[in-house]
């Protein structure tokens, strides 16, 4: 589903991603952990086309998004970019719901304007997802009337309504208190059971360890360790990862 090779990205003189290569199989859940500023979010933004890579190559859902030509990332045509844009979804840390739309319309708007679905079909899909998120009774509320956890579940529903083949999460629970975090993680776990391919950037170590198929530790723009999450947490090989996990353990 994802095949990234030697992705490089810098902002000015600041090299944010140095040489990022990894693969992810269909139906797998990958957790990306690492300290702030390690490049996790930038990587996610390149995978979702919010940011463009400087070098390297990337295949998503069996299609090439960009390839390396003499050390520079060359993107495919706009048609391919758009096709892949529609096959990937992103859930943000601070939700980014549309405040002027009702919950229902937040979920139907893109289905109608982008996928050209009819009103009924879009609303049916939205209600089905809201039911799954336990939010069917909030369809006509506005985002400002919801708790953080509810907002995040709406934004997951909004992403799922587009039938993405890969769903990305950028620290989906970092803006939530522990209780609301649990309710959002529960939703992500249930998606994992349905074999949704997901990449989750997170600081929730228990989630990364217990609910993902793979875990990846990044620091200073490189992948330090990538592998089975239980293995990675219980037998970290790299010194840097050991230190990172220690600070987390001593905190709790």
């Amino acid at each position: 589903m994802i095949n990234a090779r030697s992705i490089v990205k810098s902002f000015g003189d600041n090299v944010v991603l140095k040489d990022i290569s990894f693969t992810l199989e269909k139906g797998h859940v990958l957790s990306i952990i690492g300290p702030s500023g390690s490049g996790k979010s930038t990587l996610l933004r390149i995978l979702t086309q919010l940011e463009s890579a400087d070098g390297g190559s990337l295949d998503l859902v069996g299609k090439t998004l960009f390839r390396d030509v003499d050390g520079r990332a060359v993107y495919e045509s706009n048609a391919v970019r758009r096709e892949l844009n529609l096959k990937t979804g992103l859930v943000f840390q601070n939700f980014n719901l549309f405040p002027h739309f009702s919950v229902l319309r937040n979920i139907t708007e893109a289905q109608r304007a982008v996928l050209r679905r009819g009103k009924e079909e879009a609303e049916e899909k939205a209600m089905e997802l809201l039911k799954k998120m336990n939010l069917a009774d909030r369809a006509n509320s506005y985002p400002c009337e919801l708790s953080g956890g509810q907002k995040q579940r709406v934004s997951i529903a909004r992403a799922l309504a587009m039938d993405p083949e890969i769903l990305f999460f950028d620290e989906p629970t970092s803006a939530l208190d522990p209780e609301l975090t649990m309710e959002v993680l529960k939703v992500i776990r249930s998606l994992a059971e349905e074999k949704m391919t997901m990449v989750v950037v997170t600081h929730e170590m228990n989630f990364a360890k217990g609910s993902s198929d793979e875990a990846l530790f990044m620091d200073e723009g490189v992948i330090v360790e990538h592998g089975n999450p239980v293995e990675l947490f219980e037998n970290p090989k790299e010194e840097r990862l050991k230190r990172f996990l220690n600070t987390f353990n001593s905190r709790t």
């Binding site: 979702t48 086309q49 919010l50 758009r82 844009n85 529609l86 990937t88 979804g89 992103l90 943000f92 601070n94 980014n96 719901l97 549309f98 405040p99 002027h100 708007e109 893109a110 304007a113 982008v114 996928l115 909004r158 992403a159 587009m162």
Partner: peptide, 25 residues
């Protein structure tokens, strides 16, 4: 900026984003 980013990820065109998401707000 998040409003533009959410719109872009969902596949809205620039014009659609401007008239339906940004302008009303």
């Amino acid at each position: 900026r998040g409003q533009y980013e959410a719109s872009s990820v969902l596949g809205f065109t620039k014009a659609y984003t401007f008239f339906h998401i940004i302008l009303p707000q």
